[in-house]
Amino acid sequence: MLTIGCHLSSAKGYLAMGKEAVKIDANTFQFFTRNPRGTRAKAMNPEDVKRYLEFAKDHGISRILAHAPYTLNGCSADEHLRELAAETMRDDLERLEYTPGNCYNFHPGSHVGQGAEMGIGYIADMLNQVLTPELHTTVLLETMSGKGSEVGREFEELREILDRVERSDQMGVCLDTCHVWDGGYDIAGDLDGVLNRFDRVIGLSRLKAIHLNDSQNPLGAHKDRHAKIGEGFIGFEALKRVVSHPALKDLPFYLETPNELDGYAREIAMMREGL
């Protein structure tokens, strides 16, 4: 069965997210670990987590994905901001031990003029500070669209980060369909070619999750503007091929389209139809 969900607000806690997921016929979901535009995080509620885990087991919810705040930039030119990124990630991973065995996704960051090579080095340094043998969460690098000075538009940049991380067995990749399209990878016209390149450069065994989004922009625009499924330049048929591709069909998919819950419910039904 297709594992698919959407991004939900964590404001009311894990159990509330689980109930919202079931309401829209999702069997997974994504959430921000804290304010996406800041650093503040709510205190953990162990009782809420316990009730959620029981609910998730009863309703077949699996492989949830935590998303780091957008403000986390491990390759900033500002040393203080790099330290803050490491502290935020370390705290997030400690909190995720309440729900072990899932994934934590983050945007690699922006090198802000220092150059991709310097940015890659800083990102790997942060991960080497944060990852420890005691953690039970897989950390995912997200593919990026390449706007501004983002690190991670090319698969080769992600591979270089992975190669520099000492505990790379705790690492993986989240492929965002809008981002790779905006980054220049033609998943609509040559999905097999894109996946073959990913496999050669990174390895499909590293691919742990997919953000399923259409794009408001044409191929290679480097702008990162998500669109509803079927309302963008990638198109419904191409995204349907993504979820049904033999190399991808067993992965969890997470919608980040500009929707409310009813819109997500429609898109989940669209993606499941005929599978």
Results as ranks from 00 to 15, higher is better:
136 H>V: 02
99 T>M: 13
90 R>T: 07
107 H>L: 05
108 P>W: 07
134 E>M: 04
106 F>I: 04
99 T>F: 02
102 N>F: 09
120 I>F: 06
96 L>T: 08
99 T>K: 03
141 L>E: 10
129 Q>V: 05
144 M>C: 13
125 D>A: 14
129 Q>M: 10
136 H>C: 14
133 P>Q: 08
105 N>E: 01
140 L>M: 03
92 D>E: 15
127 L>I: 13
118 M>H: 10
93 L>C: 07
100 P>N: 03
102 N>Q: 07
137 T>L: 09
141 L>Y: 04
112 V>W: 12
125 D>Y: 14
112 V>L: 15
113 G>M: 09
140 L>Q: 03
115 G>V: 03
112 V>H: 07
91 D>T: 15
123 I>H: 07
144 M>P: 01
107 H>E: 00
104 Y>A: 02
114 Q>S: 14
95 R>S: 07
106 F>Y: 12
121 G>K: 13
95 R>W: 09
117 E>Q: 13
108 P>I: 10
111 H>S: 10
128 N>R: 14
138 T>E: 12
129 Q>S: 08
124 A>C: 03
91 D>Y: 04
125 D>H: 13
104 Y>T: 03
108 P>Y: 06
100 P>R: 02
92 D>A: 13
139 V>W: 00
93 L>Q: 00
124 A>Y: 11
145 S>E: 05
130 V>H: 05
130 V>C: 01
126 M>A: 13
103 C>G: 01
136 H>S: 15
114 Q>P: 01
142 E>Q: 12
109 G>V: 11
109 G>N: 12
115 G>H: 10
110 S>T: 13
99 T>E: 14
121 G>D: 10
106 F>Q: 09
123 I>K: 11
115 G>P: 02
124 A>S: 07
100 P>A: 10
118 M>I: 11
133 P>S: 15
95 R>I: 07
132 T>W: 06
117 E>K: 14
132 T>M: 00
91 D>W: 03
130 V>I: 09
113 G>K: 07
133 P>D: 15
106 F>V: 11
122 Y>P: 00
129 Q>G: 00
102 N>R: 03
91 D>V: 13
141 L>P: 01
121 G>C: 04
121 G>N: 14
138 T>W: 00
124 A>M: 11
140 L>Y: 10
113 G>D: 04
105 N>H: 02
106 F>L: 13
127 L>N: 03
121 G>A: 07
119 G>E: 04
115 G>T: 11
119 G>Y: 14
100 P>W: 04
125 D>L: 00
109 G>L: 11
94 E>A: 10
116 A>D: 08
97 E>H: 08
114 Q>F: 09
145 S>I: 02
91 D>K: 15
124 A>W: 09
132 T>P: 02
96 L>H: 07
137 T>E: 01
143 T>Y: 04
141 L>Q: 10
101 G>L: 11
134 E>F: 00
111 H>G: 03
124 A>E: 09
94 E>Y: 06
145 S>Y: 06
134 E>Y: 06
129 Q>L: 06
114 Q>E: 13
93 L>S: 04
109 G>T: 08
111 H>W: 14
135 L>W: 05
111 H>Q: 06
102 N>L: 03
125 D>S: 05
